[in-house]
Structure formats: structure tokens, C-alpha cells
Design a protein around this nucleic acid. Structure first.
Length: 924
DNA sequence: ACTCTGCATGTAGGG
DNA sequence: CCTACATGCAGAGTG
């Protein structure tokens, strides 16, 4: 019986009790023990944590080797090798199936150099190890070929049920290895064909197995799992050994290089497969996204699987439009927020930078020309920063390129090289649409690949949830709910090693998202920054909307910390609960408002995922199951049937969406109104007589000042940002009352100044007519002010527009009194004194007036009333030339002007008396 | 006020 | 424990 010679990559048995070392360094690999999978510890039989890899060829030339006899190019690994190589017996030889001569594996076996293959950690294969049934399947894998590095393949087999294992065993036993001519295939889809070839001589079980494999493949093609397949770099197929057709061989024989480093070859994506009668499957095949670990280059052993390029045939083809070029996928990276941000620095994985980019010794680095998938050349500065004792490699100046590709955090950039010219090519893959890379036409993508691809790349790779979720949402456009459902079922049935729990949840989210019309919006994304300080996180506006919603929803989810009693603090008549402990999150529920039946609350059981109706006012703990449903005894168990049919659930979600939308509107409308609250709002409301909704009295609360709480009416908090408001003139909220009071004060001052100004003019006129005594000067000077600036003119014009009234008579009377007693040569200091006296007197009147309701001022003739009151109380002032007009517009102007003036005072204390401002305005 | 630049730092994950 | 890397941060430069 032939037996593979394998080397364990792992050094230590994963069985903690055993802990045996494989001592791979001294052995030529572990022979397959009969009936067992090679990936077992000799000592305890435990499966190893890490994959084993075929050591037949890799150590010498990275997996490729010429047959010693016929010269045929052979690849050691992977599933297709079974068709290419005759696996020899314990001696470790491998026969080329073409000539059945040994390719001299033994000579290779001695090398201890690890090849970097199969280094996938537990995230790839960890789940597959322990169960015997899995081992059995893995054994099948082994029997399919020395695919010990074929982690993804192992996954494939895991996706199957055990039904086929017997078949494969059978196949092995019978050694039905077809001649290479029959299996010059390039893809697993063709595996079916090849297997059909097999089946010509094999027992029906083989065919059955083949069908199973085909089904498996098709399921994969649909789900397009981002699997980690330890294939040689450049082999575009999930089962790369099969790629070695004549053409591939010829290509493969030319090793690519960059600089001093020798590269592993990359067989060109076999056109034979894509362009022949296999087209029906080719498109599907080419869409399988396979991680291709690097095989050579500096640091290849350190390259983490996350950087392994996942690229499809089609993508490769798109890149290598030139038929003479070979595309070598180098690595890829999921863009971080900072990568995709404005800084324009793309952090390169160190290992990748050192392996695939030119060596640099200076931090400044060197310019690197990289072509994008559209053929456009970009020049980035490839450099590094000293970081600790290491280096941090970055590509600088990538922003234009990133933007041109419309990439954002969560998307993936891929770096490839076109050989033989060695040109670097930069591709991309949208998290939201992984097939966007290289402008692949959606039509080429089989149904289902899209969403699942996005799904897995977005979720399983732990992409930032922002983009990941967005990607999901976007990817779901055009994808039907039913399709998702079917897909999910399909995935479920495959018993894959993916976390279906997560998948289901996401599907739930997706399904919900599907029902959110507002999220199914324009394809063209607008990006914007979030965060006031860090503008690095570029997110889609839709995502930000979603984030915002989520954030707001999160407010609803906050619950007081359990078993902690708050202390009540009263601030400005508001009671605040203060907790020592932070709040906890409750379970998310959805609210809907039905046209009939009122509001409902629904929650999903964490166990069975059924939706249960709850009382509206119920707050659920973070973990909630049907058992906790104390409000509906008929549905307090997971076994109780779901109250909602899928259709009803859809409807419910839709209702919830509407509910949220309405709530958002109700939140944001006041917020918008809030922008115009405060003085401007009041002023406008007063002036325009804004007859807003009587019920929409809005308290202009603010959070402008960090120390201030909602309801604070200090001058800082009531300061409106801008715009017009909708406080009613009759609004009696704290802010409005404060504003009114201040407005009165302000108006008093203004009136006073105007009166002084007019009186001064009158006095000046009088001064022309004769002398006056000091007393008269003093009294008259109270009324004097000189128009010196536009504001004063404005004031005057406003006064001129004031209606005639008895105040005019009063003023005239006063002016008459002062006639002949004004001394224009009075000393400024004395003038100030006189103004102080005026201020004192005016403040008395101001206080009286301020005690009156503002309504007086806000009525149709409000300002007139103000003047009248003022005059009545102070028995002074009124411009001699008070205008005749009663037009409202000038009043408005005056009011707005006053408001603006008030705003200028906003930084100071309230109700301050005439100060420097006034002195400036009244520079007499 | 904003961007650019160079470096520092916290942390997740690998060994 | 150590490394890689995502991101923060501060100073310089710029409009």
C-alpha cells in the first residue's frame, strides 16, 4: 500500500496531556499509519492543532518538481496531485503518473526547511481536529492527494457529511487514479469530470462520492467561502495541483523573480479551462476566493494567513489583461480606518513589505510605482518608520488611489505582481461587494456568491462592523430574502465549520435590513467622517446613519445598574439620579405602532430566536429567553409556536422601521427647531408672530456648556446657534422668560440711548439760541446723545418710525424745558457722571418695565407700548422727531438689532448696566 | 483651523 | 512575552 510521507508542521501535540513533539526536524515526516490520518500524534493519537504539509517538494522548489524520468512538471500538493502523482510506498517515492517513475521525493524529504505551507492556525482548522469522523474525512482528503496543506480542502470535506467517506476510502483502496490526460483539469468543478473519468472504472460509490464532491463544490461556489487553502502561490484553483496542464506547465517552468528574490511560480490561470467547454462552470469556479499563502520571498514564513491573497481566477484574469503576463498575487490587506482615512498612509504588513517590496534601508524609502486595476499608474512612497526595534512599513500618498477606487475601511486591497515584468498591481475588493475588484461584472457572478461572499468576508474576517454591516446591506441589494433564506439553509445543511449561529444572526440582521427601505438607498456612497477629533474613520453615510440609529437605540437599551440605588441630586429644580455604577445594557426589542391595536413591543428569544410579544413598558435584561416571558404564559417556552409568520415578521420589522423613523423625526425636528431657539427664536417669533403649533412649546435646552444640564437657562446655554425658532410669544418656559426679561432690559437701554440722542440734538439746537445754567445742562444732558454710528442711525430711524403718541408730546415738553440750558462744552467726565445719574434713573424705570409682561412689547404695537411705558415711568425721553411710520419692518429691524446686540452681550453677566458698549455708542 | 509628518503607544494576537 | 500594527498625538507647515 502506498503511503504518503508527510511532515508535521506542528512541533507539539495539541493534546495538553501528551505534548509529544513531532521532532520533525530529524525525521522525514511521519508516515501515514495505516487506517489513520497522518495528522495524529504518534504518542497519543490526538489530532494536531496545525495542519501537516506535504514535504515532498516544497523544501526544494516550493512545491514544484520535475519528474526525474519524464521531466513532467509536478506539483506535490493538494487534491489534484492524486491525479498527477502516483504516491509511492513507505519508501516515500512519488511517481509521475505520466511515466510512473519516481520523482525522487526521498531526496527532498531530508530537508528540514519549513516551507511555510500549512501554517494555518486553529482558526482555520482548529475545529476539525478532534472528532474521529472528521479524521475519517480528513483521511479521505489524504487519500485524495497529499493535500496536507489543503486546509481549505479539509474544510471542504468537513462540509460534507460522512456519507462519502466510504466512497473515498473505496477509491483509495482501488487506486483508481486516472491518467493525467483524462484529468487535465483546472478546477474542482472539473473534478467532477475527472471523477467521471474515474467512475468509468470505479464502483458506483465513487461516482456517488464524486457527486457528493460536486455538490459540495457547488455549495461552495454558492457560498464562496473565504477558505484558507494552502495552495501554492499563484495557483488560482482551489485544488491547484490540477492546474498543471500543458500550458500551465510551460508557464510554471518560468520562475518569477523580483530583484534578488526568487519567487514561486504562478501558473497562469489556465485559459483552457475558462475558454473551453467548461465555461458553464468556469465562471463559478473562478469566483471561489481562495487564500493563497506565499511560498517564497522574505518573511514568507511569517506572513499571517490574513494577508494571504484571496483572489479568483477571474480577478487574476482581469489584472492580467495581457495574455503574456502572469499575475502573482502577493498579499492583501483589509483597510483599517487609518489606512482608508485622509492621512493617506497605508500601513503595510511588515512581512509583506519585506517580502514583496523592494528592500529599503532608509526611512525615507523610495517611490514605488503601482498600477491599479484600471491600468493607471500610481506612485506611492514606500517607506518605513522605526518602531520600537522594528520597522513599520507604510505606503504614503495612497489617498487618491484609495478614493479613486472608492475604498473605505473594511475594504481590501490586494497586491499582485505581473510577471515577467515584475510590475506591481494593486487591486481591491469591496467589503460591501467583494466582487468589485477589477471591475468584475456582476453578471459573471453566480447568484448567491455575492451576498455570501460579502457575508463571510465581512463577518468571518472580523471586519469592522461598520463597513461589514454596510457591506451586508449593500450586498443584499437585489438579493432576495428567499434567496438568503435558501442560502442559509443550504449552508446550514452543509454542516460547515463556519459559525452558523453567527451567520444566522447576521442573516437576521440582513433580513431586517432588507426591510429598512431607507437603507436601501443610492448605490453611490457618500463618505463622511465621524468623530470631531479623529477624522480618520471614514464611514459610509448610510453606515453613519445606521450607527446613529444604533447609538440612539443604545440609549434606550441602557438600564440602571441592578441592585444599585441612585442618589438623587437636585440641580435647578431638576432631579437627577446618580449611580455609582455604570448603566447596563438591556435586550434590544422592537416597537411597532399598528394602525389598530396601538403600540407593541416584540423581543426575540435568545435561545430559539422566536419573536414574542411583550407589554410595551417592559424592559428586558440583556439575555432573555422564552422562559422569561412572564407576560404570556402561552409562549413562555421555546417550544411554543412562533406568533409570527415570516411574512408577519417582515411586516413587523417594517413597522418597526417606520416607528423608528417617526421617532427619529420627532427627535430631530425639535433638534432643528432648537437651532433657532433662544433669542433669535424668540425675536423672530415675537416679530413674525409665528403661530407655531400651540403644543410645540420647546424648551431650549442645550448641552453647549459641559457643566450645564438640560433646562439650564444661562446665557451660554440659551445662545442659539443660528436660525429661526418657534417659541411662541406666549411661551413661558424658563428660557423664554429669561430672554424676555433680558429683552426688556435691552430695549429699555436702547430707548434710553435714543432718547438721549434726540434730547442732545434738541439741546444742541437750544444751545444755539442761548446760555443755560448748570442744572439745566445736567438735566438736559440726560437726554443727549449724538448719532455717531450706523447703529445709532438705525436706532434713530427706528425711532423715527415709531408711531406718534402722547409720548411725543411728553418729549417735546421735556425738550422745551431744556431749551436754552444746554452746555455743549461740558467736561466729558462730568458728562459721564451725568450719564451715571441717567443710568440710575433709567434702571429704576427699567426694573419697573421689566416686571411687566413682554406681551406688551410683542403685540402689534408692542414697541409702542414699550415706549409709552418707559415714558410714563421715567417721565422723560422721547425723540423730538419720532417718526410717523408704523410699519412693521422697521420694528423688526429694531428688534433684530436689539437681539444682535443682546447676543454680543452673551458672554457677560446678565442685566448689566450701561457699560463700555454704551459709552461707545454714546460717545458724547 | 487644518493638514502634514514623524514618532509614540496601547493592544491584540502570535509564538 | 514579544511583535506588529492601528491609531493617537504633538509639532511644523500652510492657507
Amino acid at each position: 500500500m502506498r503511503e504518503l510521507i508527510l511532515r508535521m508542521k506542528s512541533k507539539t501535540c495539541m493534546n495538553a496531556v501528551c505534548g509529544a513533539s513531532t521532532s520533525s526536524g530529524s525525521r522525514k515526516g511521519w508516515p501515514l499509519r495505516s487506517g489513520e490520518f497522518a495528522n495524529l500524534c504518534d504518542k497519543c493519537g490526538s489530532a494536531y492543532e496545525q495542519s501537516i504539509f506535504c514535504d515532498m517538494f516544497h523544501s526544494k522548489d516550493s512545491g514544484w518538481r520535475d519528474c526525474a524520468s519524464c521531466g513532467k512538471r509536478l506539483h506535490c500538493g493538494c487534491i489534484a496531485s492524486i491525479f498527477l502523482l502516483e504516491l509511492l510506498d513507505h519508501g516515500g517515492g512519488v511517481n509521475c503518473v505520466s511515466c510512473t517513475k519516481s520523482s525522487g521525493v526521498n531526496s527532498v524529504m531530508g530537508s528540514e526547511k519549513p516551507n511555510g505551507f500549512g501554517t494555518s492556525k486553529g482558526d482555520d482548522i482548529g475545529e476539525m481536529q478532534s472528532a474521529d469522523s472528521q479524521l475519517d474525512r480528513e483521511r479521505k482528503l489524504m487519500q485524495l492527494g497529499c493535500t496536507t496543506e489543503g486546509i481549505g480542502t479539509i474544510h471542504l470535506l468537513q462540509l460534507q457529511n460522512g456519507e462519502t467517506s466510504g466512497s473515498f476510502r473505496q477509491m483509495k483502496q482501488e487506486d483508481n487514479i486516472p491518467p493525467v490526460g483524462e484529468i487535465g483539469i483546472t478546477s474542482f468543478s472539473n473534478f467532477n469530470q475527472a471523477s467521471n473519468g474515474l467512475s468509468q472504472t470505479a464502483k458506483p460509490e465513487i461516482h456517488k462520492a464524486t457527486i457528493a464532491a460536486k455538490e459540495l463544490y457547488e455549495s461552495l461556489a454558492q457560498t464562496n467561502l473565504s477558505m484558507t487553502l494552502g495552495t501554492p502561490l499563484g495557483n488560482p484553483n482551489p485544488f491547484p495541483g490540477a492546474v498543471v496542464d500543458e500550458r500551465g506547465q510551460s508557464k510554471a517552468l518560468s520562475p518569477f523573480q523580483q530583484g534578488p528574490r526568487s519567487r514561486h511560480l504562478l501558473p497562469k490561470p489556465p485559459k483552457s479551462a475558462l475558454g473551453t467547454g467548461l465555461e458553464s462552470n468556469a465562471g463559478m469556479v473562478s469566483q471561489i476566493r481562495v487564500a493563497r499563502p506565499p511560498t517564497e520571498g522574505r518573511g514568507r514564513n511569517q506572513l499571517l494567513p490574513r494577508y494571504w491573497p484571496r483572489i479568483t481566477d477571474q480577478e487574476l484574469q482581469q489584472i492580467s489583461a495581457d495574455a503574456n503576463s502572469t499575475v502573482v498575487p502577493l498579499f492583501e490587506k483589509v483597510l483599517s480606518a487609518s489606512d482608508a482615512g485622509r492621512i493617506g498612509r497605508l500601513v503595510l504588513p511588515k512581512a509583506c513589505a519585506e517580502a514583496y517590496f523592494p528592500p529599503i534601508s532608509q526611512p525615507e524609502g523610495l517611490p514605488l510605482r503601482i498600477q491599479d486595476v484600471k491600468g493607471k499608474d500610481w506612485v506611492f512612497q514606500f517607506r518605513f518608520w522605526p518602531n520600537n526595534n522594528s520597522r513599520m512599513y507604510v505606503l504614503e500618498g495612497v489617498t487618491p488611489c484609495i478614493q479613486s477606487m472608492q475604498l473605505q475601511a473594511g475594504d481590501t486591497v490586494t497586491f499582485s505582481r505581473m510577471d515577467p515584468e515584475g510590475k506591481l498591481v494593486m487591486g481591491f475588493r469591496k467589503a460591501s461587494n467583494n466582487m468589485a475588484m477589477q471591475d468584475i461584472q456582476p453578471s459573471a457572478i453566480p447568484n448567491g456568491v455575492h451576498s455570501s461572499e460579502n457575508f463571510f468576508s465581512g463577518v468571518s474576517e472580523n471586519l469592522p462592523i461598520i463597513s461589514g454591516y454596510s457591506g451586508l446591506l449593500q450586498s443584499l441589494k437585489g438579493s432576495s430574502d428567499t434567496h438568503l433564506s435558501a442560502l442559509s439553509k443550504h449552508l446550514h445543511s452543509t454542516n460547515g465549520d463556519i459559525s452558523w449561529h453567527t451567520s444566522e444572526k447576521h442573516e437576521e440582521r440582513m433580513r431586517e435590513s432588507l426591510l429598512l427601505p431607507s437603507l436601501l438607498v443610492p448605490e453611490r456612497k457618500r463618505t463622511r467622517n465621524i468623530g470631531s477629533k479623529s477624522k480618520r474613520l471614514l464611514i459610509d453615510s448610510l453606515d453613519s446613519l445606521e450607527l446613529k440609529l444604533t447609538w440612539e437605540e443604545a440609549q434606550d437599551l441602557l438600564r440602571p445598574p441592578p441592585s444599585v440605588k441612585p442618589s438623587i441630586v437636585t440641580i435647578e429644580d431638576h432631579d437627577f439620579e446618580e449611580y455609582e455604577e455604570p448603566p447596563v445594557f438591556g435586550k434590544r426589542t422592537i416597537f411597532v405602532v399598528r394602525s389598530i391595536g396601538g403600540q407593541e413591543q416584540w423581543a426575540q428569544c435568545d435561545s430559539c430566536c422566536k419573536w414574542r410579544r411583550l407589554p410595551v413598558d417592559v424592559l428586558l435584561p440583556p439575555k432573555w429567553t422564552c422562559v422569561d416571558n412572564a407576560w404570556d404564559q402561552s409562549r413562555c417556552s421555546c417550544s411554543a409556536p412562533d406568533e409570527l409568520s415570516p411574512r408577519e415578521l417582515e411586516h413587523l420589522l417594517r413597522l418597526n422601521k417606520e416607528f423608528k423613523k417617526r421617532r427619529m423625526l420627532s427627535i430631530h425636528r425639535p433638534a432643528q427647531e432648537h437651532k433657532s431657539s433662544g433669542l433669535d427664536a424668540l425675536a423672530n417669533a415675537a416679530i413674525l408672530g409665528d403661530a407655531g403649533d400651540p403644543g410645540t412649546t420647546v424648551v431650549a435646552t442645550t448641552t453647549k456648556h459641559p457643566r450645564h444640564r438640560p433646562g439650564c437657562s444661562c446665557i451660554v446655554c440659551i445662545q442659539p446657534p443660528s436660525g429661526k425658532g418657534k417659541h411662541k410669544p406666549t411661551c413661558t418656559c424658563t428660557v423664554c422668560m429669561t430672554v424676555k426679561r433680558r429683552f426688556k432690559t435691552m430695549m429699555m437701554r436702547k430707548k434710553k440711548r435714543q432718547s438721549e440722542h434726540e434730547a442732545e440734538i434738541a439741546l444742541r439746537d437750544q444751545n444755539m439760541s442761548g446760555p443755560r445754567d448748570e442744572a439745566e445742562v445736567e438735566s438736559s444732558s440726560k437726554l443727549v446723545s449724538t448719532p455717531q454710528d450706523p447703529s445709532e442711525n438705525e436706532d434713530r430711524s427706528a425711532n423715527e418710525l415709531e408711531p406718534k403718541s402722547q409720548s411725543n408730546n411728553l418729549l417735546n415738553k421735556m425738550i422745551d424745558i431744556g431749551k436754552g440750558h444746554i452746555d455743549l462744552n461740558c467736561h466729558p467726565a462730568r458728562e459721564e457722571e451725568s450719564q451715571v445719574g441717567l443710568a440710575r434713573m433709567s434702571m429704576l424705570s427699567l426694573l419697573q418695565v421689566a416686571s411687566l409682561p413682554l406681551d406688551t412689547y410683542l403685540k402689534q404695537n408692542g414697541l409702542t407700548s414699550l415706549v409709552s411705558e418707559q415714558q410714563g415711568s421715567s417721565a422723560s425721553q422721547m425723540p423730538a422727531q419720532a417718526g410717523e411710520s408704523e410699519g412693521r419692518l422697521p420694528e423688526d429691524c429694531q428688534f433684530v438689532s436689539a437681539v444682535q446686540e443682546q447676543k454680543q452681550e452673551s458672554g457677560g453677566e446678565e442685566n448689566r448696566g450701561p457699560g463700555p458698549e454704551q459709552s461707545q455708542n454714546d460717545p458724547v
